[in-house]
Amino acid sequence: MKKQGRGIAGCMYSLTVMNAPNPCSAYVQMREDGSVNVQTGACDIGQGSNTVLAMMVAESLTVPFEKVSVYSADTSATPYDFGTLSSRVTYTGGRAVLAACEQVKGVLLEAAAKQLKTRPDRLSFKAGMIVDKYDAQKQLPVAAAAAISQFVHRKLPMGMGEFYPFNVPVDAQGHGEPADSYYYHATAVDVEVDTDTGVVEVKKLYTAVDCGKALNPMIVEGQLEGGAMQAVGWALREDMYPYGTGAEAESPDFNPNFRPINISDYAIATTLDTPEIHGAIVETHEGEGPFGAKAAGEICANSAAPAIVNAIHDAVGIWISDLPATPEKVLKLLRDQQS
């Protein structure tokens, strides 16, 4: 018999590494044609940080996104970053590149002020132009300011930014502020439990993240869906354990080769196992974050598993206390419940 259940779960997650210094640094240089070269240790492991950092640089310097090249995570060539962990790259890397961009802008404003015969503090950046706020006649393309600075005033438009996220390491009494900021996630699922086979199927999954400002909503959506699939996988299927420690070791038929030694036996979800996923971006403004952003990475895989466990309980009244909720475990608990 197939029984339906619904479950929800929410969570919070630290953004930036807790209780430890975890800086990021970046070099930014505008070339004489207005293109921008960004170097940073911040590592894009597929989460899209190169894209988002380029977007931030483009926004800060008011140049087209296509003009920005990001060279990242080459330890022999790029400046320091702590690493891609603890959902810190957009936040920390963003602050580092923006700090560098401020220095580049300072150089460009000096050159533009000389060229336009005005003062730097009267100038502002506006859609690829440097404009006198009080005399709109006085304006200069950003790229021209870069060339003039480099060749006429002999000053390269470059900057070097760093950012240390705030934290006060927690002391022995438990006092402190472990992380710079936090972000939040919730999942709601509808599941179907086959009481004859123990197979659990997630039919619908709703996932929502508070990511601060969603700098690239498409990437956030990708994180929401990818995180959901990852979570459905480890909630229901993906399992690994050291040799001979599974429950099966007690069986008289125990096979000593029993463990997922092949990726073919470590069953990540396929598209056919994918539920109907609905993602929601809950935008907030993080005052310390670059353009108000927080993060959208790891947390997207965090609340689905407890939501699924809650839904299984709602459907058939059993509690899974040991993931994954394989058909075998579910069926065993259902049998125990009957007896």
């Binding site: 038929d253 080769n257 029993f258």
Partner: peptide, 18 residues
């Protein structure tokens, strides 16, 4: 049935009739 990486003997006995 045997117990292997895909299922235990117990599970196979339970699920075959289904």
């Amino acid at each position: 049935p045997i117990t292997d990486q895909r299922a235990t003997k117990w599970y196979r006995q339970e699920v075959v009739p289904v």
